[in-house]
């Protein structure tokens, strides 16, 4: 089962369902994400890569890992498109995570601008992975715009608060045919596991690892949680009762005709 169970994004196959987000970067974080969490995709903020010698995050990325440049810093579709093109010029490949924020306080994504940018970039041949606020209509628009995956937020970015938007993410999983990758707000392995059980295709996280006491150990915990959640989803969850209990011998078993 696990061998054939691939994550497919824009025609590219991945085995791992953990994606490292951008934000709180360090060499040790990237090492742990790749070695211990098994990440095959690493997000890269182009604005941080836009630097000279000693600092360049590109130098930290191990070979064989797929780079996912993001458009963080973009306030509208035009800026996101410019940043995506710059990423391609910098040699970051064709993947791009569209992130458009018109809010410096909560960093919530602007869905309308995200749809516009997705359409432009998909036409230019990018594998577009838009970060969005979970809204079914928007998700459908993103599919039509040519997105390769849809990335709803679980709770405000960096908050480690888990699946605050659970009900809405479930609707996206149920209704959208593209991979639904839960992005932002996942703070614990148990939350990652829960999202995977729901049928999420992958989990993106950064802060949960970056702020952990023991980075490699937390990275490994995420890997296991995501694998467990995925296996549970594939296995088909047993029923869960919301109240009361169910006798294994039916109460009406004595009835004969």
């Amino acid at each position: 089962m696990q061998e054939k169970d691939k994550l497919i994004i824009g025609g590219h196959e991945f085995t791992s369902r953990f994606i490292l987000g951008s934000g709180k970067y360090s060499l040790s974080l990237i090492e742990a994400a790749v070695k211990d969490a098994g990440a095959e995709i690493i997000t890269l903020a182009v604005r941080r890569a836009n630097t000279k010698d000693q600092e360049n995050i590109l130098d930290y990325i191990p070979e064989g890992v797929t780079l996912l440049p993001n458009t963080s810093g973009a306030r509208n579709a035009e800026e996101a498109v410019r940043i995506a093109r710059l990423a391609r010029e910098l040699g970051c490949g064709n993947f791009v995570k569209v992130e458009i924020m018109r809010d410096s306080k909560y960093l919530l994504p602007d869905n309308a601008e995200t749809i516009r940018a997705t359409e432009i970039l998909a036409k230019e041949g990018f594998v577009v992975m838009p970060y969005m606020y979970p809204d079914l209509n928007v998700a459908r628009d993103l599919v039509n715009a040519g997105a390769a995956a849809v990335m709803p937020l679980a709770s405000p970015i960096g908050s480690n608060k888990g699946l605050a938007t659970k009900e809405f993410i479930q609707i996206l999983i149920d209704e959208i045919d593209l991979p639904i990758i839960v992005d932002a707000g996942i703070g614990r392995p148990s939350q990652a596991c829960e999202a995977m059980e729901m049928g999420a295709a992958a989990i993106m996280a950064n802060t949960a690892l970056a702020t952990a006491g023991n980075l490699p150990l937390m990275a490994a915990a995420f890997r296991q949680a995501i694998e467990a959640g995925r296996a549970a989803y594939l296995a088909g969850l047993g029923r869960v009762l919301t109240r009361g209990a169910s006798a294994s011998d039916p109460l009406t078993g004595f009835l004969h005709d």
């Binding site: 903020a45 941080r48 630097t51 000279k52 800026e79």
Partner: peptide, 11 residues
């Protein structure tokens, strides 16, 4: 801590 020389793009 992590010293950062740039986290900015002029767009």
């Amino acid at each position: 801590l992590q010293p950062v020389l740039n986290d900015y793009l002029y767009v």
